[in-house]
Amino acid sequence: MDSTMDPVVLQLGVESINVGDILQRTVAFFVGLFAVLLVGRLLFVPLVLKGLENRDFDKAVQSLGESVTGGIVWFAAIAVAFTLGGFGAFLGAFATLGGALALAIGFAAQDLIGNFVAGVFILKDKPFEVGDWIEWDGQSGRVEDIDLRVSRVRTFDNEQITVPNGDLANNAVKNPVAYNTLRQKFVFGIGYDDDINAATEYITEEAENHPDILEDPAPSVRLVELGDSDVGLQSRFWIEDPDRGDFVRVRSEYIQAVKERFDEEGIDIPYVHRTLTGEVEVIESIAQEA
Rank of each mutant, 00 (worst) to 15 (best):
E208S: 06
Y202H: 13
G86S: 02
I17P: 04
M1G: 15
D157H: 04
L42A: 09
N18A: 11
E206F: 01
G92K: 12
N158W: 05
Q184A: 09
L23Q: 11
R274E: 08
T4N: 06
I255S: 06
G114P: 01
F121A: 11
D157L: 00
Q139H: 15
V250M: 03
T275C: 06
Y202D: 08
V163A: 03
L168M: 14
G70D: 03
L276A: 13
I105T: 15
E135Q: 14
Q110R: 05
D195M: 04
Q139T: 11
L148C: 04
V143Q: 09
D167Q: 09
D145P: 02
F90R: 02
E253V: 08
E260A: 04
V282Y: 14
Q160W: 08
E215G: 11
E284G: 11
L223R: 13
S235M: 07
N171G: 06
Q256E: 06
S63K: 12
F94V: 15
V36T: 08
K174N: 05
A102T: 15
L38Y: 07
P7C: 03
I190N: 00
L148F: 12
D167E: 10
D111Y: 10
T204I: 10
V27G: 11
F262R: 07
S252Y: 14
E205P: 07
G232C: 01
A93K: 14
E260K: 08
R154M: 00
S16I: 12
D193G: 13
Y192P: 06
M5P: 06
Y271K: 07
A169H: 11
R55I: 02
V117L: 13
V36W: 01
I286R: 13
A60D: 11
F30T: 13
T200C: 01
A207C: 14
V163R: 09
Q288C: 08
D21W: 01
D228E: 15
E240K: 14
M1Y: 04
Q184R: 06
T181M: 09
A172C: 06
G88D: 10
Y179G: 12
V130S: 05
L84M: 15
V150M: 02
L123R: 09
L123Y: 04
T277N: 12
D147V: 10
G114V: 04
G189L: 00
A89E: 15
G189Y: 00
L223W: 01
D56F: 07
F87E: 08
V248A: 14
L47Y: 01
A104R: 06
D212V: 00
L123T: 00
V187E: 02
V45R: 05
R149P: 03
